[in-house]
Design a protein around this nucleic acid. Sequence first.
DNA 1: TCCTGGCACTCGCACTGATCGAGTGCCAGT
DNA 2: ACTGGCACTCGATCAGTGCGAGTGCCAGGA
Lengths: 335, 335
Amino acid sequence: MDDRKLAVLRAIVTDYVRSREPVGSRALVERHRLDVSPATIRNDMAALEEEGYIAQPHTSAGRIPTDKGYRLFVDRLAQVKPLSRAERGAISAFLAGAVDLDDIVTRTVRLLAKVTSQVAIVQYPVVASAVIRQVDLIRLNGSRGLVVLVNSAGAVRQYHVDLGDCDDGDLVGLRDRLNRTVAGLTPGQAANRLGGLIDQVEPESRPLTANLVAGLADLLGGDPTTRVVVGGVGNLARFADQFETAIKPVLEALEEQVVLLRLLGEATSEVTVRIGQENEHANLAAASVVASGYGDSDESWASLGVVGPTSMDYPSTMASVRAVARYVSQILAEG
Amino acid sequence: MDDRKLAVLRAIVTDYVRSREPVGSRALVERHRLDVSPATIRNDMAALEEEGYIAQPHTSAGRIPTDKGYRLFVDRLAQVKPLSRAERGAISAFLAGAVDLDDIVTRTVRLLAKVTSQVAIVQYPVVASAVIRQVDLIRLNGSRGLVVLVNSAGAVRQYHVDLGDCDDGDLVGLRDRLNRTVAGLTPGQAANRLGGLIDQVEPESRPLTANLVAGLADLLGGDPTTRVVVGGVGNLARFADQFETAIKPVLEALEEQVVLLRLLGEATSEVTVRIGQENEHANLAAASVVASGYGDSDESWASLGVVGPTSMDYPSTMASVRAVARYVSQILAEG
DNA sequence: TCCTGGCACTCGCACTGATCGAGTGCCAGT
DNA sequence: ACTGGCACTCGATCAGTGCGAGTGCCAGGA
């Protein structure tokens, strides 16, 4: 692909992103220093269209980029523009005041929505290397009991359990035994050890123990945390004219935690972009996702990102997502 | 207010809710058995307009109800229509499969969104009579510590704390002392007792104790639980034509937990309706909220409801909200 | 070989003016 | 107190028109 054609594609993408209107050959040479005539550009455009990078909404209209065109743009042309000093300052200041993990996540999602003017998604960080600190077994009322699991990252999870006719002494014994079995271990190790526990307890405690072990295994084996927070949905307002096709499906997709997680994808340290059809979810065929992993080195790790129209400003968005991911990582590392 | 005028208002509201178009005098007599001529209706309409119950978008258009009109409609005219057997069956079946509290809330919000075709809001139930079962003080890493509070309803809350140079023995002592102080008490009682704790501990533990007490007081004094879940935002799609004025503000309001809680208002056993301007939040001036308290007798209590356009079908919506509230209450009482 | 200016053509969009009809208010008559 | 009749208003709809942005193609020049 020759240089000028790439330049033309880049120009089309940037202009279209700015104006949301099909861009023609004349406007192109006027607004970008292409130093050739519109006719030449037209030839290039015809070629680009032939190759599927751009399309014409109808005859006698300018061209708009296709998903494939955006893809090429993102892969080859977008120099991620660094944020200004002021922007970086604002990001850092906004995050600096956070007092705990909830607060960090809440602030991050707002920040991301604000700086990108798009819908932001932030996954709660998962501490991969966290070990189990404590298991608690508490009687709530009658035979209703609660198991509380705390790990070294400070994450707390719990589930209800039926204690049967187990008395308080047995409960304490069982709790201590559970603690001795799993405290200090990673979830994976703990899950392994739990299997053997059932044989070590008195026969009369076995049903309850089996119950507890099954519940803990669920908690330990499942995804460490699946919580995802969404914000900035109001930013979809700019596309109200295409509500049915562009907004409603996205809103629906955003209600499903599972979808959100898949959307963010594997956490990678680089910013990844999924454009239009590249998203597996059909509801997001008209949307793009810009995501990045973030976290405190290898210790804790998760993803954050934004969802917007395929015609978003990729360089800025990618820069913002990357910057936010880095600053949040930094905050996490410090606190 | 004479009977026929009320009938006319009711007819206008029902027709407008159905068609979303201003309704004129002729259509009114045709579609409702009013047994008078359009001219008569026009006189009534003029009077109703004079009194502020209906309005004309422009000359030569029909009338639409005002907020005041909807209010009168809801107060005096709407006989809440009972749901059909099938509907009740569906509601009950949908909720019956819930396995725990999270599941109940999630299902409820979906159900409510579905049956009303509007945006549903459900607050997590608060167990007013719950007492504190256990306070845990756990060392996570170095001086990072975690306080975990469990009440008899199974609600778990936690916050981070700096342990300073407190050693593990002191930690256990402090934990036991905290437990002796607050276990078995309601949040209110506990908050009172905590004040005196600081004087009972060794001088060297005082800074940490003060810290802990302050944190616990925050937790106990604040709203017991402020979690609110929203669903069915895609149902706003029907009003895409007025995105800027009607949808965007609502979307923005829905992102604020605090706003949501205020929106649901005090939990009452009856269905309450707030129409348009009656909502305190300016973003919701074009929306109505139909809410109801729900819960297991006086033990646990919270609110749920829906947000929709002022031109919603109040009788149906109120019936649905009431039915869902009752069924959820029932499920909570059983499990 | 590549670029350019010119030219004929297409087609969506914005504007216009005319028509239609739903709806109203008012009034005189039962 | 209700009704039928009448004149009037005014938004919505629609066809017709002109404009202009944009294209593809082609012949000529660097």
